[in-house]
C-alpha cells in the first residue's frame, strides 16, 4: 500500500479525507489498543488532517497521541 500523501488527500472531498486517514490509522492503532481502536481512531480524526498525516509518518507522534486519547477515553468513561 502506497503512503498517503497530502496531494492525494487534497484530491478527495473533506468527508472522504477523514475516511482515508482513518483507514490508514486504524490498523496502527489496533496494534496498540485492539479493544479501543475504533473509538481512538474516531477521536483522532477530530485532529487537523495535516497533523494526522504527520502522525502516519511518525510512529512516536502517533503513539503519544494514542496514549493521550486513551487517557481521555478512560476519564470520560469513569
Amino acid at each position: 500500500q502506497e503512503p498517503l500523501t497530502s496531494s492525494m488527500l487534497a484530491a478527495a472531498p473533506p468527508q472522504e479525507q477523514k475516511q482515508l486517514l482513518g483507514e490508514r490509522l486504524y490498523p496502527l492503532i489496533h496494534s496498540m489498543h485492539s479493544a479501543l481502536a475504533g473509538k481512538i481512531t474516531g477521536m483522532l480524526l477530530e485532529i487537523d488532517n495535516s497533523e494526522l498525516l504527520h502522525m502516519l509518518e511518525s510512529p512516536e507522534s502517533l503513539h503519544a497521541k494514542v496514549e493521550e486519547a486513551v487517557a481521555v477515553l478512560q476519564a470520560h468513561q469513569a
Binding site: 468527508q15 475516511q19 483507514e23 490509522l25 475504533g38 473509538k39 474516531g42
Partner: peptide, 22 residues
C-alpha cells in the same frame, strides 16, 4: 443501556460520519 455515544467509533470499510454535523 449505556448512553455514552462519544467518541464516534471508526470502523474500517464503513464511511466515516463522525464529523458530518459540522
Amino acid at each position: 443501556g449505556s448512553s455514552i455515544s462519544w467518541p464516534p467509533e471508526f470502523h474500517p470499510g464503513v464511511p466515516w460520519k463522525g464529523l458530518q454535523n459540522i
